[in-house]
């Protein structure tokens, strides 16, 4: 016997209100993506040039913050440097290593490729800006200068045994680059610094391991020493000289727990972090400070859940 229309409609309505998604679990959702603040694999968090701005003929040394929570060993780093004519965007130094025998290459061959050093090593990677680097620029342009990209390629330990570039799978390496400013600026940039790290407004020594309670919120913060925010001159497009002060920002990372604010802008150099549930879990906080002019500094702090 045919049901009256209202009953049929009711059944249809109820069945569809459940709303079926076919294949819902087959594809990842945006919420499944690793968040930017989470350090759960080797990755480059910061690259520092000291100093960040040099004059032609001057040298800068390089270092990088490359944590690897998956291994006790340090990553092997290869450093390259290459001048660029534009904003330095892209992929750093595009060097073809396919024909390079890293084990037997001469220093001259390596220098031609732009190699400026390896790490860990006895000397930090160093680049000396050529004396004629700015010769083709006008006087005004020389004040702004030109970029030299410094690129670091970090290899996991098992790849360091490769004797030829063709043995290397570049999907397994971490690559980063940073712009070294080579100019004749009257107020060249310097790297900022971080004076102290605070947890819930309490200063924490750098070598301390902060003990936290499970599943608790903590306010993390950094304090800057006086003068780290530099005053500098800027010549506008109309030729006027402006005095400006840096507006730094901080990027926050952790190997566990949950960071709520990944980026905070001066003067809000604080972020809220929630500790993991698991008692005994250990981890590290990282914070990178950028002055927006090429200067960088970082701080690391370890923590453990009681």
């Amino acid at each position: 016997m045919m049901r009256p229309p209202s009953a049929v409609a009711t059944v249809l309505v109820l069945s569809t209100l459940s709303s079926c998604v076919i294949g819902s679990e087959k594809y990842p959702r945006p919420r499944d993506l690793s968040p930017t603040w989470l350090v759960d694999r080797p990755r480059v968090l910061a690259v520092v040039a000291e100093p960040p701005e040099v004059r032609p003929g001057e040298a800068a040394t390089f270092s990088a913050l490359i944590p690897d929570p998956t291994s006790e060993d340090d990553l092997f780093q290869v450093w390259l440097a290459c001048p660029v004519d534009d904003a330095g965007n892209g992929f750093g130094c595009l060097t073809d290593f396919s024909d390079v025998d890293l084990e037997n290459a001469t220093p001259e061959e390596l220098a031609d490729l732009g190699l400026i050093g390896v790490a860990p090593g006895p000397f930090p990677p160093t680049y000396v800006a050529p004396l004629d680097l700015l010769d083709d620029l006008s006087e005004e342009e020389r004040l702004e200068g030109r970029y030299v990209n410094a690129q670091v390629t970090a290899f996991p330990g098992d790849l360091t045994q490769a004797t030829s570039a063709t043995d290397i799978d570049f999907n397994e390496v971490e690559v980063a680059y940073k712009r070294l400013v080579v100019s004749e600026a009257r107020t060249p940039n310097h790297n900022p610094s971080i004076a102290t790290f605070v947890v819930d407004r309490l200063e924490v020594p750098a070598d301390a391991v902060v003990q936290v309670d499970p599943k608790q919120e903590y306010d993390l913060g950094i304090q800057l020493p006086d003068g780290t925010r530099e005053l500098y001159e800027f010549v506008t497009s109309s030729g006027e000289v402006e005095e400006r002060v840096e507006e730094p920002y901080a990027s926050w990372y952790s190997t566990g727990g949950e960071v709520q604010e990944e980026v905070t802008l001066y003067p809000y150099l604080e972020s809220t972090w929630t500790s993991p549930e698991t008692s005994g879990e250990e981890g590290t906080w990282y914070v990178v400070l950028r002055d927006r002019r090429g200067g960088m500094a970082w701080w690391t702090q370890r923590w453990v859940v009681r």
Partner: peptide, 22 residues
């Protein structure tokens, strides 16, 4: 959309392009 597929509109990646989601 009473019954529907996943219906991706576009792909997004995580911060280093090592993972993707729809």
């Amino acid at each position: 959309n009473a019954v529907r597929g996943v219906n991706p509109e576009f792909t997004i990646y995580n911060y280093d392009y090592s993972e993707y989601a729809y």
